[in-house]
């Protein structure tokens, strides 16, 4: 029961911040995909970089564990590209469309209904996909520092530098 309450509270704060950051709207999502407005990329990468530093500190202190998804190139690449196609058509992500509905953008209802149907289609095809696409390029649960064989803080530092350079570029170009 506690777990459910934590989930709800985390979701409420997340939804609140997404709405305040103006990142859940169709115009912002498509703005990023049309390379006109990088608001969602700024929001997303700032949160990734902050959480990356925090979570790796917690991990090094033995307080938290990583929970990695396996790298299966077939699934990640083919699925990722298919997701991108749907994302550009819908203009919302699975999580953010609930936020879009929360700020009155009720066309998100069509996306939610589409997702329920799409999830059903995926479930029907799962056995087939598991035997095919999901067998291609299975590398297991790996991180970038493991793949490169270097300390994770080197990679974290590199990402922070890349992120700051990217943000500076966006601000310079007024994106």
């Amino acid at each position: 029961m506690n777990e459910l309450i934590y989930g709800l509270v985390t979701g409420i704060i997340f939804g609140f911040l997404l709405q305040k950051g103006r990142v859940i709207r169709y115009d912002k999502q498509l703005g990023a995909l049309r390379l006109l407005d990088m608001t969602i990329v700024k929001f997303m990468f700032t949160s990734i970089l902050v959480a990356m530093v925090g979570v790796y500190i917690l991990k090094d202190l033995g307080i938290a564990k990583l929970s990695l998804k396996a790298t299966v190139l077939g699934g990640n690449i083919v699925g990722g590209l298919i997701f991108g196609i749907g994302w550009a058509l819908l203009g919302y992500c699975p999580g953010t469309q609930l936020g879009a509905l929360g700020e009155g953008r009720w066309d998100a209802v069509w996306g939610i209904l589409g997702m329920l149907v799409g999830a059903g289609i995926f479930a029907e095809m799962y056995s087939f996909l598991k035997r095919t696409v999901l067998q291609w390029g299975d590398f297991g649960k790996i991180t970038i520092p493991q793949a490169l064989g270097i300390n994770h803080w080197i990679v974290v530092a590199a990402f922070v530098i890349i992120g700051i350079l990217m943000f500076r570029f966006f601000e310079k170009k007024g994106l």
Binding site: K69, A70, V72, G75, N76, V78, G79, G80, L81, I82, F83, G84, I85, G86, W87, A88, L89, L90, G91, Y92, C93, P94, G95, Q97, D107, A108, W110, G111, I112, L113, G114, M115, V117, G118, A119, I121, F122, L129, V133, L134
Partner: peptide
């Protein structure tokens, strides 16, 4: 939007995440 939603979730489940 409906088609986009169906396609997106299919891709997300195949990729194992959104």
């Amino acid at each position: 939007a409906f088609i986009g939603g169906a396609v997106a979730i299919f891709g997300a489940r195949l990729a194992d995440g959104c």
